[in-house]
Design a protein around this nucleic acid. Structure first.
Lengths: 211, 211, 211, 211
DNA sequence: AATGAATGAGTATTCATTCAT
DNA sequence: AATGAATGAATACTCATTCAT
């Protein structure tokens, strides 16, 4: 069997094992067995547990980015692009839960070689989302006339951050709650984001009322 | 040294170690050394690694809930209560990063005894937030005149879920990002929540436009 | 509580624990708890696990010897003495299984301090039984006319040895088999011994027939 | 070195260690060192201390049964079969004291996984002996004319049980006593068994005389 | 291209034992 | 007469990794 194929088999097994058990709890024995090969072969191809995990992170990160990018309706209005991107994100993570677990949970909970690896992709996505949000903002609500761009950027970054957290939370909730589909969850999120965005653009902010 | 004191020392050490290294990577040796006691004493008082971790989760969960409840300005308007609770949440997580890491990251990435432990606390908080949001909605925007209460309830539940998820995500972001204070994070989140809530009340929703 | 009483409580607990779990598997913690005292007190009174076990062996050995001696109908015919002694042995071991386990099983399966301790008692009993058997032999079958005394002594020793093994085996069998009382088992054994003894006395022996 | 060979080496070391020190006192470290391999290899091949012990019990039980069966002179008269089987038993236990210690002493003194394992083999042997004794009885002393068959059966069962127990006890005695050969032990036992059997057949029994 | 055989370095857990009071 | 607090030393078991083929 050609090397490339074997490598993918191994990484499939590794992603599944890492995703479900975590980096430390996953054992090379288990991964090799799940991949249907002997342990030395895993080492021959992927060198060490650390490199194997890193390779998994990279592959899953690339797959997630590709899925989101492929999902975005290019040429559509910015809000529609955001919507379709969010949908693609939900779909990919839902259909590839182990990969998502590796990226979102495992890689970030274990020391430095890995967290940085994910941060790269995260920055890529945040930048992409930030671009979309920025465009959507300008398109739907006009340019930031009375607000300086820097402040807006920080808010947009905060929004992106909040969006991911909210999305993950909603995904779990939608799964566990009768009668709430992933699509509805996405719509709720979109609503949330859109309204906040609108206010942001208009310079309307909530401020603590006097006591 | 009395048992109760020693136990707290041990749990301090454990929270720090678990929070930074994760459940599996943390070793009982390390925890005992950091606590300044011998390993057998840790076992004598806390029985096993699993129970120790569970005890940490419970202590940190209780501390977080207590901090948030203490932070809420009772008697104030609902939005102000939400705001003050959020602020307390961000402040507690910022000043207690290891405890927060145990709850948010480590407990949830490792198998079932632990994830459930956190879920209990999380549900408590979600319910609390749901109450606040519901009250805020009624208070600030009037009763649900043209929308049936059931639909509103579902939206409020979704919003609460999203809000908590977003807050969790922002807590990490605020900790890691230079120049973002807990207060600012709370304000950002409040803005989004409030705007989304307002739209919700008014029946304004974002819907995918025709292609 | 006076020392002597406490010591007996501790040894009761120890015999039970050692008898059921064995020397190594029994823990001082368990023994102390079962005795209802703190561990340091056990050490204060009985010094070490080894000494505690030795003390148990001695106490149980003395009790067994005393029970058998008390059971023997002094002044009766030798066969009747043997019979009553066997009965007392069966009764004592049956009603004190943990003590018997300590002597027969545990003490002999663990290294040298202990095996020797039991050997002392065993020799005492074997000698006692040997005396009885010898007397019975002479009484019932006449002196060893045509056989030299030394050879007889060896046979008697073998018989005593076999008797103990057979007795133990029969005790277990009688306990597990419906409708076989300990007394019947003892009678069977007595028969066995008596017949063999008779032949022995008469110089009748089984020899391998030519093929 | 092929696995099968290594496994036997390990079990040799284990039988020796378990036989001399007992299940609890024997350490896997010691066994591995005695076998000339590293500890992980022992675990790789034999999984756990418990399974290793069980494997030892089974191997030694099978070896003992095989030795006895091989020793029985098939086709000979029943008494001669019994004699030769007994001789083989004493020879095997004498030349393989650690294996015998594992079976007779260690396996039975430690909890339930092990005691049952030995009981199976023991029952097999008892049944075999019962068959022989029954045959011998009929052959040498004629059918049970004046005694009902059922009563005889119970007596034969008791005798077999006692015989095996006595043999077990004598095995230890012969090993420990200068100048007692396996053959002599077998002869002694045979004498008793034969005499007891003879009396049994003839309906002669020892009964406690009136006081 | 692939594996059976093997291990050094850990990890959680337990236990007999002591000290200060 | 009695105990709460504490530990050094061991023990079963695991895992990432390599070597010879």
């Amino acid at each position: 069997m050609p090397r490339a194929v074997r490598e993918q088999q191994m990484m499939d097994a590794a992603v599944r094992t890492f995703g479900q058990l975590g980096y430390r709890a996953a054992s090379m024995d288990e991964i090799a067995e799940l991949a249907g090969v002997s342990k030395p072969l895993v080492y021959l191809y992927l060198n060490s547990k650390e490199e194997l995990f890193t390779a998994c992170i990279r592959r899953e990160a690339a797959a997630l980015v590709a899925a989101v990018q492929a999902g975005v309706e290019s040429g559509a209005t910015a809000d529609r692009q955001l919507w379709s991107g969010l949908g693609a994100f939900f779909e990919h993570t839902a259909s590839n839960p182990d990969g998502w677990a590796v990226l979102h949970r495992q890689a970030r909970t274990h020391g430095e070689p890995f967290a940085g690896e994910v941060a790269v992709m995260r920055d890529e996505i945040v930048e992409f989302v930030t671009g979309l949000i920025g465009a959507a903002a300008r398109e739907a609500h006009g340019g930031p006339s009375d607000r300086d761009a820097e402040l807006l950027d920080r808010d947009v970054a905060g929004l992106a951050q909040a969006l991911v957290g909210a999305a993950e939370s909603l995904a779990g909730w939608a799964n566990d709650t009768e009668g709430v589909s992933a699509k509805e969850a996405a719509a709720t999120l979109m609503n949330f984001a859109w309204a906040g965005l609108g206010n942001l653009m208009r310079g309307v902010r909530w401020v603590p009322s006097a006591r």
